[in-house]
Amino acid sequence: MSASAKINVPTPSDIRARKGGTPLVCLTAYATPTAQMMDTYCDIVLVGDSVGMVVHGLPDTLGVTMEMMELHGAAVKRGLTQAMMVVDMPFGSYEESPEQAFRNAARLMRVTGAAAVKLEGGVAMADTIRFLTSRSIPVMAHVGLTPQAINTLGGYKVQGRGEDRARVVADAKAVEAAGAFSVVLEKVPESLSDEITETLSIPTIGIGASAGCDGQILVVDDMLGLFTAFKPKFAKRYATLGRDGEVAIAQYAKDVRNRSFPAPEHVFADEVTTK
């Protein structure tokens, strides 16, 4: 077999077929080097609108623009050869009408090379999802806590408790019926996540949901400890790169000020010496 044989990157149909199988591994990415790090290990890499908070310092995701998603999406794509890339549709780019959603989804896929888009909302977005999927735009849905709706949800609260349970179930069923190939469940109680996972024929991808979901996703800056402004309960930190980086920068500053950096091995002589 040729060493340059094409790698079969998963398609939305492949992801859908993974329902009930080995859990899907998903992470967010916003830049080429990070995408390269996770390419071998992830089934799905999401260019999330969380980029607004973890990279651009915004207070929430509402200020993220199409241009930002295009820039970061194209950068992530350059780092991937094996994982499927999905790009978030930012706030205001799809809610007005299915036609608006199609124009912007097609633009994101064309500019970034994404295999699919992700948008937030359940019953209210079902017609839009149906419009997109019937026009060759694969959609990953997102229900439960939808960060773009924090002003109407009253903050980053758990969704689906008590009487609210039926609403989240209805949202999940609606996006499935509309043609989404998978659905993210965010900050949904464990028992409800398990119920939805058992009910739906498409994969559920949990974030603050249940180990029983068909896959899991985390914000990479949370799990690597790069984003330290706050730590969500659902985010396990697998490293402390933010703190390690701060320690390294402090040592660099000390070395510069005491003139121990650059050392002789870091500078250049007037002439090249030969042995």
Score class of each variant (00 low, 15 high):
Gly215Cys: 05
Phe102Leu: 09
Pro262Ala: 10
Ala178Val: 12
Met38Gly: 02
Phe234Gln: 07
Gly57Ala: 12
Ala141Ser: 15
Lys157Trp: 04
Ala17Val: 03
Phe234Val: 13
Val55Phe: 06
Ala115Lys: 02
Asp222Ile: 06
Phe181Ile: 03
Arg130Met: 04
Lys6Asn: 07
Pro10Tyr: 02
Val86Met: 09
Phe234Thr: 04
Asp214Lys: 07
Val175Gln: 14
Glu70Phe: 07
Phe91His: 05
Ala31Gly: 05
Ser191Lys: 14
Lys233Phe: 14
Pro90Met: 04
Glu70Lys: 15
Ala239Arg: 10
Tyr30Phe: 14
Val184Asp: 06
Asp244Leu: 11
Val9Arg: 00
Asp164Arg: 15
Ala269Met: 11
Ala209Thr: 05
Asp270Asn: 05
Pro189Phe: 02
Pro10Cys: 07
Ala106Trp: 03
Gly215Trp: 11
Cys26Phe: 08
Leu192Val: 04
His142Met: 13
Val86Pro: 01
Leu241Pro: 02
Val158Asp: 11
Gly121His: 11
Tyr156Met: 08
Val139Phe: 02
Gly48Trp: 03
Ile150Ala: 11
Leu27Gly: 01
Tyr238Val: 04
Asp222Arg: 09
Arg16Gln: 12
Met66Glu: 02
Leu218Ala: 06
Ala141Pro: 01
Leu62Met: 12
Val247Glu: 07
Ser191Leu: 12
Gln36Ile: 01
Asn151Met: 10
Glu99Asn: 03
Ala211His: 14
Asp127Tyr: 01
Pro98Ser: 04
Pro59Glu: 09
Asn151Ala: 13
Ala106Ile: 00
Arg259Ser: 12
Asp194Thr: 07
Gly179Thr: 01
Val139Gly: 00
Ser134Glu: 15
Glu176Asn: 06
Lys77Gln: 02
Ala177Asp: 11
Asp171Phe: 13
Gly52Tyr: 07
Tyr252Lys: 03
Thr146Cys: 15
Leu241Phe: 10
Pro33Gly: 10
Arg165Tyr: 07
Leu192Gln: 07
Gly245Glu: 13
Glu176Arg: 14
Gly242Tyr: 05
Tyr252Asn: 01
Glu186Thr: 14
Met1Ile: 11
Lys233Pro: 04
Asp270Ile: 05
Arg16Val: 04
Gly208Asn: 10
Val47Tyr: 13
Arg243His: 09
Ala209Gln: 07
Ser13Gly: 03
Phe234Glu: 08
Ala177Lys: 15
Thr34Leu: 08
Ala141Gly: 14
Val256Gly: 01
Arg161Trp: 06
Gly48Asp: 04
Thr228Glu: 09
